[in-house]
């Protein structure tokens, strides 16, 4: 009995144990600061996109909620942080917290619509919420600056010590730290009883409720948390660029982040990170020779990826992960 008890413990521990590859991953992310000093601004964008994708992973990869409008919370966070800084409170950490709270409240308010429906209603509701916010930001120009964007944001140094600079040094380290901390929280979360119950709901909602899991409340909870994460990504965006444009709420943001997550693979937390690197690299390369028709190429990429590429890319990642039992890739919902 003691041996079985121990086996159960070590097996449950194995599922959440840190694998060496994870340490290497984060060490590389930090080392990039010195390795690519001329690309810090791009790397900052990657870190922010990775956080945004991590947020989507929490609802899509772990809870099976499809969203066509995740940019709603990104944009809300960006405007919240931007407006706070514009009106005198320029401390980045306070702004970050404020943005997360604002987005979380919005997520909580939207959650009853999202947790109820099937995939189709969810697509429509999420898309609708994002469109409403876009329209609000557009019409309420006295507050948001409308189509001209929100200007005049001044951010004070991080912790009162590190001033934001033109090369993105502070920006990258600040964003990377925030992403890392939020990643740690997410990692803890998905391996908790709460996280396990989300996977239960995603896998089989009938069995989940027959196992004592209340699906609606759990889904509302993770939707709220994910909204806060997206809000954090928005805040980082606003603070490190000191500008918020209407573009943060645009439909293409929601579509991009889905693509980012799908490239990397949902349901194991690192998908969004890997996807963000690949996506930004693609965007940079394509933009170098045909900037105006980026949308066409991204569309072609999506179509080919779903038709053929997924098995290729994920086959590669999965065969890599096979050597690392702690990092199992989950099936897509």
């Amino acid at each position: 009995m003691t041996t079985l008890h121990d086996r159960v413990r070590s097996s449950l521990y194995g599922a959440r144990r840190w694998h060496p590859v994870e340490f290497i991953f984060w060490a590389l992310a930090l080392a990039s600061f010195w390795l690519f000093p001329r690309h810090l601004l791009l790397m900052n964008e990657i870190a922010i996109l990775a956080l945004f994708a991590l947020s989507l992973d929490l609802i899509l990869g772990y809870a099976g909620i499809v969203s066509l409008g995740h940019a709603a919370f990104l944009g809300l966070g960006a405007y919240a942080a931007g407006l706070l800084a514009k009106h005198g409170i320029g401390d980045p950490l306070i702004g970050l917290l404020f943005a997360m709270i604002v987005s979380a409240v919005a997520g909580l308010l939207a959650s009853p619509l999202v947790v109820k429906g099937n995939d189709l209603t969810r697509l429509m509701v999420t898309l609708g919420v994002a469109l409403i916010l876009h329209e609000v930001a557009n019409s309420w120009a006295s507050l948001t600056g409308g189509a001209d964007g929100l200007q005049g944001i001044t951010i004070t140094p991080v912790l009162g010590l590190f001033q934001f600079d033109l090369f993105g040094k502070t920006a990258y380290l600040y964003s990377l730290s925030v992403v890392f901390v939020l990643f740690l929280v997410a990692r803890r979360l998905v391996h908790s009883p709460f996280g396990l119950s989300l996977r239960a709901i995603r896998d089989n909602v009938l069995r989940a409720s027959a196992s004592g899991v209340p699906p609606s409340r759990r889904l509302a909870a993770i939707y709220t948390i994910a909204a806060a994460y997206a809000g954090a990504a928005g805040a980082l965006m606003a603070q490190t660029t000191q500008f918020v444009s209407l573009d943060v709420l645009d439909f293409h943001r929601s579509a991009d982040v889905m693509l980012v997550l799908i490239i990397g693979g949902p349901g194991y937390l690192y998908g969004g990170m890997i996807g963000a690197v690949v996506f930004k690299f693609l965007q940079d390369t394509i933009a170098a020779f045909t900037p105006q028709y980026w949308m066409f190429w991204i569309g072609l990429f999506l179509v080919l990826f779903v038709l053929k590429g997924r098995s290729l890319v994920h086959g590669g990642i999965a065969s890599l992960l096979k050597h690392f039992p702690g990092l199992r890739m989950r099936k897509t919902p």
């Binding site: 009883p193 709460f194 004592g212 899991v213």
Partner: peptide, 17 residues
């Protein structure tokens, strides 16, 4: 999972099983 739900742990986001 079922055991932790029986114990009412499902709402604890930071526990380790």
């Amino acid at each position: 999972l079922v055991t932790s739900e029986r114990l009412g742990y499902g709402t604890r986001p930071f526990n380790a099983l």
